[in-house]
Nucleic acid binder design. Structure first.
Lengths: 210, 210, 210, 210
DNA sequence: GATGAATGAGCGTTCATTCAT
DNA sequence: AATGAATGAACGCTCATTCAT
């Protein structure tokens, strides 16, 4: 990689980080090129050197990078020597940690983003899809292992993974509604337990109607 | 109710429906007063006769009405003579039906909305919260009954309700990612089963590691 | 005059009075048809029955009527049996009284009005001119008498009349600038004295340089 | 001063001059951002670079600048080595000159401005007041000197100054009413004489009734 | 005649984008 | 490469005017 490329990558990263902070502070709708430039301490025009396609591209990249970080973190937190269930629990905890660390950005990402809002066929839609799927597959792969291991039922792994992702937003949503404080580790455990066992009462004396 | 009030309510409804269609087509960010007026086949200024506080109020009302419709539908679908579990299943199916009927709007609502984006203390934030909570409580109440009935475990009903709400977006999200077709009744069943039983393998020979 | 005409004149008067109150409260720029209609307790559309040419015509008429009232008041206050100087003093006092009675309206009229803002040739410009001149001539005629009477110098009566009119706004302007309280009778006397004697020191020991 | 500051000041001046021309042509109510931008041959948005607070700020600045120019001109025209009366006469002549040079603008300023139209407490109201008072004080100070010098009577200098200001608008008003041509030097002399001596006939044979 | 709901031109303002320096 | 002044399309909103009832 040439010196120029290194510099370029550094600049791109700086801009994207600034964009994430701005998104966190002002939401997607409140994110303007001016604010990102200010946050990155560069001139507005400079952004167009690194993101020639403008704002859409920049926001897209910021979201993609956020999801990639998420994926990377999920992978880093994984310890294949553990049982599948323990690994799943680790992943859930890891996602909660990331949510907490980049809280404002993920809050915006979850509540405010148009996730898949590009024109059908737009290359960016594909990329966004792929990076989301990649995060998903971390979990789905683990589910496949767990299924093979008979640790969990033979359900559709991808649907279960999406479901788990959505479940993890529940404590955040509840917090935003003022129904609870910020998500805690206890919430991570609660979500994990719901995901594993559901709500059904398994006690022998349980009411067996369905 | 006087004739004027009837007419006014009719107009308000027409505008809100137009707004919902526009939100569905263009997302929240792409929703402009011009587009709503065009969609409602009225002049731009007319909107301000019925929504004097402008766009924010209009979007807020559209979202609130959407959630109210949801709540109403949940209540209508409920048959208290059934077992709690059967009633829960009905609710899940009802929500899927609504999602299907107003698919684009709910897609925007779920993926794009700033749900709680008003200034803290804004009366609208409170209303939005309340109407969301009302929908939530339909489910939470049912969960309380089910718990009393020992049909489900003594979990925190409100968290479980939020979680169920989030879970129900999973098939929609999956569909939007191109990983599956539009949500079906089968998806409703799958979500219901996950919610009830979780993913854990309950077979006697199951691998019990945790 | 037919019954219809009487009614019409009554309505016109009501609307004009409402307009004057609104102008007083909100200034010319803040005067809208809606506000005038509200103030007159009639429907917006009704105004167009009596002022088919719309807002410009209405404001024009309100100003004209205000000036006519002023003229009428000046005439009513005049007592031809007095000396010209006493009659002038009465007129100045009368103008201050009117200013006080319709303070807000005249404040707007003096400070805010486009007095002669119509297209050249517009019939309304002519009318406005004429009604203003009519008020002016009340004073100018008196000045002519005074000149004939050798009570005042043989100056150009019309210019002197305009000047007196402008001088009378000085206490109001001073008040609006916060440099003094609302115009008082003492201000009327001071203006009158300045108009009669100027500022020059007439004392024998006075410094005679010019 | 850096090059940027010079350029900025130049632009601000250009915009303000354009604004003054537009105000002169269309009056305050007819002054739109579009027209000012057109007149200044810049894009509408550019105005907001130099007047971030928008139209109110722009109009305010235009008026303030106009009054400052007036004050500066009054000071420039003053020659302290002359007698107070001669200095007063110079000031009156100077004001007429300025009126002539920026005729349309001052016409609007005099006839159309809401001079003190901001919310009470608004910093701009204070500034406007102050700049007006500053112009006033040029004259009031001179009047104080003249009083000390016994050239004029011991009248209230500030009221006399406001009165003189108002008197100077008389020829302009007369002209606008079509009662005379544009103000001339002769009008300046006439105003000056009225201000000094009033209208009273001082001839020995004069009619002394009051 | 009286109404007021409906209209849409026109306003002030924002902000993504361009380009001369 | 980096800048930020300049641009102008597009937005939310107001309000004088019209017209069906």
């Amino acid at each position: 990689m040439t010196k120029e490329e290194v510099l370029k990558e550094y600049r791109v990263r700086e801009i994207l980080e600034a964009a994430r902070r701005v998104i966190g502070k002002f939401g997607f709708e409140g994110t303007t090129i001016d604010r990102v430039a200010d946050e990155a301490r560069i001139a507005k025009g400079t952004i167009y050197l690194y993101f020639p396609n403008g704002k859409d591209e920049l926001l897209h990249s910021a979201v993609v990078e956020g999801l990639r970080d998420l994926t990377a973190e999920l992978r880093r937190s994984d310890d294949p020597s553990q049982t599948p269930i323990a690994r799943l629990a680790s992943m859930v905890r890891a996602m909660f940690t990331i949510q907490r660390n980049h809280q404002d950005f993920f809050k915006a990402l979850i509540l405010d983003s148009r996730f898949v809002a590009f024109e059908p066929g737009d290359a960016r839609e594909t990329e966004l899809r792929n990076v989301y799927i990649e995060a998903l597959e971390c979990v789905a792969d683990l589910l496949r292992v767990a299924i093979a291991d008979r640790a969990i039922r033979p359900i559709e792994p991808q649907l279960a993974a999406v479901t788990l992702f959505e479940m993890m937003t529940a404590p955040l949503r509840r917090s935003l509604l003022g129904l609870a404080g910020a998500p805690t580790d206890a919430d991570a455990e609660a979500v994990m337990e719901l995901f594993l066992y559901g709500v059904r009462d398994a006690r022998p004396s349980g009411n067996g109607n369905a």
